[in-house]
Design a protein around this nucleic acid. Structure first.
Ligand SMILES: [Mn+2]
Ligand SMILES: [Mn+2]
Ligand SMILES: [Mn+2]
Ligand SMILES: [Mn+2]
Lengths: 226, 226
DNA sequence: TTTTAATTTTAGATTTGTCTAAATTTATTT
DNA sequence: AAATAAATTTAGACAAATCTAAAATTAAAA
């Protein structure tokens, strides 16, 4: 029931890769964890041993039910801690990822559930990602990435897919953050870059790379809660 | 500047043993960490390598200035997290030690200092132990252990030296907690046990072992702050 | 369909932290 | 002062996690 920090990191990364592609590859996982393929293979064997992974050599792999449950718990912890850091300790939303990367490995279930209550059972983390509840239930996010948005449609930033410090810094610099209302003014097919307009600001150009990582949803001027 | 959890645990344990005895021995440290003397010797060599320890083989050891600084930071983190768990997450004072034992190894300095601010720069943890400030400055506690208290002097429980779950459970059972006012009614020289009286309760008998771990200070009915 | 390339796995090493059993040093008794 | 006991250290082993270099497998190109 309790896994090492390294195992938890692997489970979480596999879960995220599964979301995009159905099946995960050794190289992709190694890249995502900034480790080497040989190291990944070693870990895969251990995870299979513990029945956390469905895995046949040379044929890719995916999480078992057990494995998915464990991964979701890590994600739950990560996102709750991120929100705690921003809401209660006044960290910036672009400063919390690394710290949560450590905090997510604290093992006490009781702690997680009480933290959840302390934060008022929040639905999303500071980057707009949904927080699984104590049963591991996930609200899927209803959002699309900026690169797939049509021209001149005003939307609201609801999430950031990649959360490297470099990425978050770039967005900060361009005054794009969670909740920012914006629209696309122009698309440049040459490199798929976009001209983006934020209200009361000069337009800025965003690379395709960045656009793929900014998630937006329909602008809802009024609160969703009725 | 960043040490492994195991190194931090060793540094902290050495610091605590130093408080009581001036010099620390391999066996004492092994007992305190529930590990084996041979393992301790291995670790001592590494700590000396990193100049955290003054150590000559067979001659005992103590922390260097560096080592003491590192140890105090771990203690600061431990106690701040304990207080957080009790004050903000509604844990009982006897439930937090194990969790803090993990949380104390989270590395971010910024996190610790913000947590400190969030808690209002507290002076003591839930067990009455002083919390070092961000410079590592310590307020020494002005308290004495129950076994050294004269008869019939009313005092207030201000700290618990050993914080095993078993110990805290025993105290809970006898209605002794932080802030409890009590006095010693009788001492039994045979085994150094004590009869202790808490107001509105029947007297209870406390072993010498327990008495040595209950810290008390003069009963101050009015707040210390003026 | 061979040949070549990319991916994945194995073999063998390394680091960190721990252990047991045996040897060494220091402390205590006779 | 020897002999015995206690404390400490060394020697050698092991598990976890990682790496490099080489081999095996699968995929893509010629
Ligand atoms: Mn992590
Ligand atoms: Mn996040
Ligand atoms: Mn610890
Ligand atoms: Mn404490």
């Amino acid at each position: 029931m309790k896994y090492s920090a390294s195992k938890e990191n692997h489970l979480k990364a596999i879960f995220h890769l599964q979301q995009e592609q159905g099946i995960v590859t050794t190289n992709a996982l190694a890249a995502s964890l900034r480790t080497k393929p040989a190291s990944v293979t070693d870990m895969l064997k251990k995870l299979k041993e513990q029945k956390l992974l469905i895995y046949e050599r040379y044929k890719g792999f995916k999480l078992s039910t057990e494995g998915r449950k464990a991964a979701v718990l890590v994600i739950r912890k990560h996102r709750l801690w991120e929100l705690f850091l921003v809401k209660k300790l006044q960290f910036g939303w672009d400063e919390v990822h690394e710290i949560a990367e450590e905090l997510e490995h604290i093992s006490s279930r009781e702690l997680v559930d009480r933290l959840d209550a302390f934060l008022g059972f929040p639905e999303t983390d500071p980057h707009g990602d949904p927080i699984p509840d104590s049963q591991g239930r996930f609200q899927p996010r209803k959002q699309v990435c900026l690169s797939e948005l049509p021209l001149n449609k005003v939307v609201q930033v609801s999430g950031i897919a990649s959360q490297t410090t470099e990425m978050l810094e770039l967005l900060q610099y361009n005054h794009i953050r969670l909740g920012t209302r914006l629209e696309i003014r122009k698309k440049f097919p040459f490199d798929d870059s976009l001209e983006v307009k934020v209200r009361n600001r000069p337009p800025v150009t965003i690379s395709a790379r960045v656009a793929k990582n900014v998630l937006v949803k329909d602008d809802e001027p009024l609160s969703e809660k009725r």
